[in-house]
Write a protein that binds this DNA or RNA. Structure first.
Lengths: 118, 118
DNA sequence: CAGCATCCGATCTGATACTG
DNA sequence: CAGTATCAGATCGGATGCTG
């Protein structure tokens, strides 16, 4: 993910931080509890391992996600939301609720049909 | 802005809706009150007219932004936040606060310096 | 002042194959 | 199971010039 060279306000920074296609869903899943790479992959339909790892590491860079690696075989790793991750998750919650709003609003059937939601 | 062909959850829909580089800042500005194209352009440093118009119209498609056109010359148009826009703005507020968090947290100077924030 | 069209380089994403 | 590398197509964003 490319970031700006310069930020004029904090909002831009956070926006960059959750820009990726899968980030909100990853945060959503992680909020349910720590998870391994493979479980996340199962839970998030359509994501590739590359994308999952890439976006996880970006979320980690911004301090939204933490990671615990356990020794031994088979390899085991757990990803989890940090405090900051839980805070940004509040925004994700609002997004979810607005999304439900859009999906259920009357008079927008065409719009939704277009998007494959109906 | 390209959207998915199919959504598996409302969250994805909303995420797509605010994905663009300038959308959160536009929402932020509009929350201060209705505004014309040219004022927005002045208020948002670095945005081009094309991007501004494009993202405004996408925000309008999702029902976050409304638009009033007045007759006569010179042309006059006012963009404003809808109710739904004000709701998604709550998420933007959280993003702003998390951004401030990241900017002011101790021990991350290097990270922030990298991003041109210090 | 508001808005549209086009061209082009920068980025993002996904598929695939490979390593510890 | 976890993670990395690479390559190609799709998308995005910015500059510029034109219209009502």
């Amino acid at each position: 993910m490319k970031q700006r060279n310069e930020y004029t306000c904090p909002l831009e920074l956070t926006h960059d931080a959750i820009r990726g296609k899968w980030k909100p869903i990853i945060l959503w899943q992680l909020n349910k509890g720590g998870s391994s790479l493979s479980s996340l992959k199962k839970e998030i339909a359509g994501i590739s391992q590359k994308m999952l790892l890439q976006q996880l590491s970006e979320l980690a860079q911004y301090g939204f996600v933490g990671k615990t690696t356990y020794d031994g075989y088979p390899l085991k790793v757990e990803y989890y939301l940090t405090d900051r991750g839980r805070k940004i998750f509040e925004a994700v919650t609002i997004m979810q609720s607005v999304g439900i709003d859009m999906m259920t609003e009357d008079g927008r059937e065409d719009f939704l049909r277009e998007k494959g939601l109906l």
